[in-house]
């Protein structure tokens, strides 16, 4: 349980640097940027579902809130630094309020999923119906189904005319994902993270140990929303327009599929699942012979049937079997045990 955080940070930095150097040699930085953003979004759901056991069918709500908050604030402030901060804070506060209602109301399992889904659909409906001129926040018109275009994109802090775009924007997004990954790793290694894993495993036992699971779930849910909000803000900068489709059911379903395919209960799985499936979708979008939704559906069915834990845990298990990593103490029974890192991802 006591792992070396510094080793984790070093590994993350080395792998990130290698990928940041190698990937642009194969794929355009424009495409890589959106894959990174989706990876961050996948990580946000992986954190709350995989480590906190919170079933959330509406993670797109916080992604959309982050994007809209950024766009609205960027129009009003005329620069990007404060809007980026607000894009993290607003979804976090929204999720905290929703979490207070859900977790202190003792909602569990599928009811959580239904509530989060319904909240996302309400936001989708609401934003879609804001086409009229009366729907204005400061100088920003919400724009209804047309969305909000033409806002200030990312700039060097303190200099609104120094835009960060193209390859530079890719590097910013990559560094941000690495930072978020390191922060999530630190969180999961902390007492709070270990307790969250305990709550995922057995809420009653953790409660009998004296832990208030409602407060901890609310905080974790809020952190997941903050990460999704950051991804939303980065998406808004990438696409230069935000539309109600960010809150759509399709968007939420895709995030869940990314996490299922990549693997929930680890930090890397949702990122690879998101980036991999989004890239496949981009490639499929370049042809018209096969409907890409059909292909995505087939991939999901194959994974659910044959690799229910997801790709990354399956590869890790294969690695363990091949190289025979065993836990001390379990060897007395000669039984192979799972990866020790699972509790911390």
């Amino acid at each position: 349980m006591q792992g070396s955080m510094s080793k984790d940070v070093m590994t993350t930095l080395v792998v990130s640097a290698a990928l940041i150097w190698a990937l642009p040699l194969m794929v355009s930085t424009y495409t890589l940027t959106i894959l990174i953003i989706y990876g961050m979004l996948g990580l946000s759901l992986g954190l709350i579902w995989g480590f906190g056991g919170i079933i959330c069918f509406g993670q797109a709500a916080y992604f959309g809130l982050g994007a809209y908050t950024y766009a609205i604030a960027a129009i009003n402030f005329g620069e990007s630094t404060i809007p980026m901060l607000l894009a993290v804070i607003v979804p976090a506060i929204f999720a905290a309020l929703l979490g207070l209602m859900m977790f202190y109301g003792r909602l569990t399992d599928v009811y959580l999923g239904v509530i989060t889904l319904v909240v996302m659909l309400i936001l989708f409906k609401f934003i879609n119906s804001t086409a009229g001129p009366q729907y204005v926040i400061g100088n920003a018109r919400l724009g209804g189904y047309n969305g909000i275009p033409g806002f200030q994109t990312l700039n060097v802090p303190g200099d609104p005319s120094a835009y960060i775009w193209g390859d530079a924007y890719f590097y910013v997004c990559a560094v941000m994902l690495a930072l978020v990954f390191i922060l999530v790793s630190a969180l999961l290694r902390s007492s709070f993270g270990r307790i969250a894993v305990g709550i995922r495993e057995n809420e009653t036992r953790m409660s009998l140990m004296g832990y208030d699971i409602r407060a901890r779930k609310t905080i974790l849910f809020s952190i997941g929303a903050a990460i999704a909000g950051l991804a939303g803000a980065l998406f808004a900068n990438w696409s230069e327009i935000v539309t109600p489709s960010l809150f759509s059911l399709r968007q939420s379903a895709e995030i869940i599929i990314w996490c299922i395919v990549g693997g929930f209960s680890n930090r890397v799985g949702p990122i690879f699942g998101a980036a991999g499936l989004a890239y496949i979708k981009i490639l499929l979008g370049q042809q018209s012979m096969v409907d890409n939704t059909l292909i995505m559906g087939i991939i999901l069915v194959v994974f659910v049937l044959f690799l229910p834990k997801g790709l990354v845990p399956a590869v890790a298990e294969l690695w363990n079997i091949s190289f025979g990593r065993r836990k001390r103490g379990a060897s007395r029974s000669g039984r192979r045990v799972r990866n020790r890192g699972k509790a911390n991802g």
């Binding site: 894993v197 057995n202 036992r205 509790a343």
Partner: peptide
């Protein structure tokens, strides 16, 4: 009532 997938 224990946490099955965690160690002792």
């Amino acid at each position: 009532n224990v946490l099955d997938s965690l160690s002792v």
